[in-house]
């Protein structure tokens, strides 16, 4: 009787010890994790304040070595919307790509537009292929911030299959989304988007028209020159200027027979903009000689653009 109660007591004690060991180790683990996040915070804040490059790099390396804790700290910072902190985190995040991808993917379902757009920005920075599909879906989100960030991040990731969907964002009502879509399509060198990008040269927002021009130049397909040359005679105003600028940027000699006569156009703005475009034809003597004639143009704008273009042709 006595031995059985003794056994029972021993059993209870062992069970209790077992429970203590489980929860105790959990508590130890929790404290350790907390300590790591604290350490990450210290390293991040110190690195942010440190001006000495060598020291800064050391601190960043140690911060990155904390992996999950470092990411946990960065996520905890998002709500403060401090641009200084966020920009610094954005610099570091590619080094944490492996461990950061999952937690930032989770953030995509957050209700705050700001948190989601930061997560998207960071996923773009780490070039997360797994984020491509969710980001494509977010291109249709009701929040502008989210749509704009997604359009940009998809270009950063560089998955060409997303181009078809980004192309749709060129029809977004908000210029920031359209601009980011142009930038991304340029980065992806997406030929499928050429017709839409050409339309964007006539966008009412200057930032979209410029972004479209850069995108077309970076795609650099010969078909662009043909289309633009066909559009030039009927185009007007800023659209026409952006076509000239893009033709120049493409540096396709096919466009010279059209561009060179424009140096004699009655509008001084058109002559000046053509000079600027022709400045891209580096080392081309024919262009240089044509531009030299405009150094005595009655318009100071044209003279300035001709001078700048000649410098550019000479490779200054």
């Amino acid at each position: 009787m006595r031995s059985s109660s003794h056994k029972k007591c021993t059993g209870i004690i062992i069970f209790l010890l077992f429970l203590v060991s489980i929860f105790g180790s959990g508590a130890v683990a929790n404290t350790e994790a907390e300590d790591k996040v604290k350490r990450a915070r210290h390293l991040f804040l110190t690195a942010l304040k440190t001006e000495d490059r060598g020291n800064k790099e050391k601190l960043i390396k140690e911060f990155v070595s904390l992996k999950e804790s470092a990411v946990e700290y960065i996520i905890s910072e998002i709500d403060w919307k401090d641009p200084e902190h966020l920009n610094f985190a954005e610099e570091i995040i590619p080094r944490l790509a492996r461990v950061a991808e999952r937690p930032f993917m989770f953030l995509l379902g957050d209700s705050s537009a700001f948190r989601v757009s930061v997560a998207i920005r960071f996923l773009g920075k780490i070039k997360s292929k797994r984020a491509v599909v969710p980001l494509i879906l977010l291109l249709n989100d009701y929040r502008v911030q989210v749509r704009a960030s997604s359009a940009y991040a998809l270009g950063e990731i560089g998955d060409k299959s997303s181009a078809v969907y980004i192309r749709q964002a060129l029809r977004d009502t908000v210029p920031a989304v359209r601009r980011n879509a142009c930038i991304s399509l340029g980065k992806l060198r997406s030929k499928v988007a050429i017709p839409e990008l050409i339309k964007c040269l006539d966008d009412t927002a200057y930032s979209v028209a410029y972004a479209a021009s850069y995108a077309l130049i970076s795609i650099g397909d010969p078909s662009i020159t043909d289309t633009l040359l066909a559009l030039l005679p009927t185009s007007k105003g800023a659209f026409r200027y952006h076509i000239i600028e893009t033709l120049g940027g493409l540096r396709d000699e096919k466009s010279l027979p059209v561009l060179l006569p424009l140096l004699e156009h009655p509008s001084f703005i058109e002559r000046g903009i053509t000079c600027e475009a022709l400045g891209n034809f580096r080392g081309n003597y024919r262009v240089a000689n044509a531009l030299k004639k405009l150094l005595n143009d009655p318009s100071p704008f044209v003279r300035m653009e001709a001078t700048n273009a000649l410098k550019s042709i000479r490779g200054y």
Binding site: A113, F114, S117, V144, Q145, A148, V174, P175, A176, T204, A205, Y206, S207, A209, Y210, G237, A238, Y241, H242, E245, I269, G272, I273, F301
Partner: peptide, 19 residues
């Protein structure tokens, strides 16, 4: 603005990034 290919009537800032 015309010289830098910008339509003056369409010049605006993007206000969509803050609540």
């Amino acid at each position: 603005l015309e010289r830098i290919k910008i339509n003056p009537s369409k010049l605006s800032f993007n206000l969509t990034f803050t609540d």
